[in-house]
């Protein structure tokens, strides 16, 4: 196992987890509509990254598996949605949102660092395919980071000052 395969594996897990975490947070914060919708949109990027990493992994003898199955909106999900809407009326929901944004930001940052490492290694190894993969995917990871940062910046003043 080389450093590249280790990185591929870690990044694959990181993107898969990020998709899951984005979708879970989207569901938790249904009452924060913009967060809910955009989190769902950018989760799609991580899903795509997971799929492409799995493909790329084959060339390195890795069997990484595709993205996780999409959670089906079953009875439990409907219940969680209702709970999210009820909780959305309470100021504490705002603090939970800030917490989730922070965690998502850190997870995306971790992925970004892995993409950076992978791109550097790909250049050194003159691995065009891997470099192409990183240059397509990494910008989207950076957009996930900027988005969580913007949301935190905009929401923090109101949510931190008014919750007592």
């Amino acid at each position: 196992m080389t450093g590249i395969t280790t990185t591929l594996k870690e990044l694959h897990r990181g993107e898969r987890d990020l998709e899951h975490d984005l979708l879970a947070a989207a569901e938790r914060h249904r009452a924060d509509h913009e967060f809910h919708h955009v989190a769902t949109d950018v989760a799609r990027w991580s899903r795509e990254h997971t799929r492409r990493l799995a493909e790329a992994g084959r060339a390195y003898g890795l069997d990484l598996g595709g993205p996780a199955d999409n959670p089906t909106p079953g009875a439990l999900a409907a219940l969680r949605e209702k709970a999210a809407e009820a909780l959305g009326r309470r100021p504490e929901a705002g603090l939970l949102l800030l917490h989730d944004l922070r965690e998502l930001h850190l997870a995306a940052t971790r992925n970004s660092l892995h993409w950076e490492m992978l791109a550097q290694a790909a250049q050194a190894a003159r691995d065009e395919r891997l470099l192409e993969l990183a240059s397509v995917c990494h910008p989207r990871t950076l957009r996930q980071i900027r988005w969580t940062n913007t949301m935190l910046k905009e929401l923090s003043p109101q949510l931190l000052l008014t919750v007592r």
């Binding site: 509509h33 009326r89 309470r90 929901a93 705002g94 910046k153 109101q158 008014t162 919750v163």
Partner: peptide, 21 residues
């Protein structure tokens, strides 16, 4: 003059009202 973030848009104003802030 608050300028630490963009001025709040209407949908978020209603969200803050919904949340009680």
């Amino acid at each position: 003059i608050p300028h630490y973030a963009p001025p709040t848009h209407a949908m978020q104003i209603f969200r803050y009202a919904e949340q009680g802030s």
